[in-house]
Write a protein that binds this DNA or RNA. Structure first.
Ligand SMILES: [Mn+2]
Ligand SMILES: [Mn+2]
Ligand SMILES: [Mn+2]
Ligand SMILES: [Mn+2]
Lengths: 221, 221
DNA sequence: ATTATTTATTAGGAATGCCTAATTTTCTAT
DNA sequence: ATAGAAAATTAGGCATTCCTAATAAATAAT
């Protein structure tokens, strides 16, 4: 298991959280900041090694074994983030990059003792849940619908509560996809539409849309 | 800077401590557990990059730049070992392998904050000195191997010249850990084994073990 | 349904870093 | 001085992991 395969599994795991279907090669390439061709090559190896199921031109899903390993990586990442924040005083804008390296140190005993030192935290400094030793993620906390936010809030998009292609396509067209930051500018009183800013562009989401868009006030791993 | 080059520099640094002349390719290969041919190839790259001076068929010495980087790696390694021992309760036979990975996480701020958390230690759990931020190694004074002592001497254990978990675990099992007092009872003539008393118990250490156990005759450093 | 566009895969190649086997240089012992 | 041994290097490969360019498949538009 190399750092590279670790990162592939970790991002597949993250993308799987808000994707029913298989993960697309391009989505993974984007997360990993590599080219799609490289991703295809790696997916073939992960498939050969029984960590993912990859169907040519379709998509990729983690196997139980791949998911178990990925959860362990995310667990390490987030426990290290807790340590960096709680014991070394780093802010949540600093902890991620360091944890990005520390997560690859494979020692279960090391992580278990860190976990104990930290008092068995359940969320990392970004509010994201820490997988348990069994690989299970505590139910996502700190998530809410965009309709529950108030003007001034800065949130991160987590996903959608609808599979409606129309709705999802509309969100994509305005750049509202998981991981993207969103500023709540105002909530129109007469129909509760929400005006938001996404990357310097203003967009208006209906109350129905806002109720179906899941956001959180925290960052991702 | 890869983990590989890190390890080359680190071992060159360690070998330089007890070697006036340039380091031989085979000595380095042995420490790194690789083949001499691989070492030659890497040395050419390190030379090209200005980290070592390598003279064909002669030997290799670190440049000032190479030495500075190597000292930083050793500093990280030993500070991590202190953390693992002091905060996570790992024994000196366990810390080395984990630090072997942690040392490659490159963040000066991370190490400086760890250093502060630990109270700026000057030696690691094996009694080895921790290079300062300037790359300077505190000189170990009054230290000698147990094999250099004579019956009747009373010494304090300072550390070990091996990271072998088997060896360190054995020492721990007889109570021979840094700071502990030890009386030299006799040196067996036929194989130079050393019989010592530790807290009212007699133990016999082979000549090989005695040569790897570092002690001092003075109280505290 | 056919074409155009987007997405994904294959082909071919580069950099690392390791290996074994062959060769060259240096050292040692006669 | 010279043969033999030891040490180091070069030659030739292999596995990873990434890249760009060319091709193929799937999806969207007409
Ligand atoms: Mn990472
Ligand atoms: Mn996080
Ligand atoms: Mn290492
Ligand atoms: Mn040590």
């Amino acid at each position: 298991m190399s750092e590279s395969t670790d990162n592939y599994l970790k991002h597949l795991f993250a993308l799987s959280q808000h994707n029913q279907a298989g993960i697309s090669t391009s989505a993974l390439a984007q997360k990993l900041d590599t080219r799609a061709a490289s991703v295809t090559g790696m997916l073939k190896k992960l498939h050969r090694d029984g960590l993912v199921l990859h169907t040519r031109y379709k998509g990729t899903v983690l196997t139980a074994r791949g998911r178990r390993i990925a959860a362990a990586i995310v667990r390490r990442h987030r426990i290290w983030e807790c340590f960096l924040a709680d014991y070394l005083g780093f802010g949540w804008d600093k902890v991620h990059d360091m944890a990005e390296k520390l997560e690859h140190v494979q020692s279960e005993e090391l992580i278990d003792r860190l976990d104990q030192l930290l008092g068995f935290p359940t969320v990392d400094p970004h509010g994201d849940p820490i997988p348990g030793k069994d690989g299970k993620l505590p139910a996502a906390s700190g998530q809410l619908a965009l309709s529950e936010t108030r003007p001034g809030d800065r949130v991160i998009i987590r996903g959608a509560r609808s599979e409606s292609p129309d709705f999802l396509q509309h969100l994509s067209s305005i750049g509202a996809t998981p991981g993207v930051a969103l500023w709540v500018k105002q909530v129109l009183p007469f129909d509760r539409s929400v005006v938001v800013r996404i990357k310097n562009n203003l967009h208006t989401l209906s109350a129905v849309a806002a109720a179906a868009l899941v956001v959180s006030k925290n960052r991702m791993p």
